[in-house]
Amino acid sequence: MLVSFLLALLITCWIYYQGTHRIGDIAFNKNIDDSKFEVCNEDRIFQYYSVGTNYSNGEKEIKRQFSELMSNLTFKNSGFITFRFVVNCNGEIGRFRVKTVDTELKENHFEERNIRHIEEKIKKLKKWNPGSRKKQNFDSYYVLTFKIEDGKINDIF
């Protein structure tokens, strides 16, 4: 009986873990994340497209805010830098993670210094509208992509 119980328990734990974790989840990492940034409900962080999270006046406005960096930062490679982060229910942002690919969407690398510059600039964006449903605000994950072409940030979306 013990063996059958342990097997059932093991399978239940496996199913629970597989059913409660998602691709792209960002858990707090004390080594890289700002401890002052808090989510409102750790167990319920939506995707931006499910709850309508957005930036006031859209990515066009983000591009305006980045205009100086778009002119000044130079890159050796082309491709895409994608930031994924949390917009909490108060419209604050944190827990940044970065993925980079080349123009053929294969993993590649961009200058670390430039990535840090971009991240610091994103942190200064203050007009986030948190995701909401039925007048209640929620935490959500947001994705912001920087297109790098001809050595410059060519587009942000």
Partner: peptide
Amino acid sequence: VAFNKMGQYAKGS
């Protein structure tokens, strides 16, 4: 689909 939606384009692609 899930990888591309989450911005993980290398794996999605």
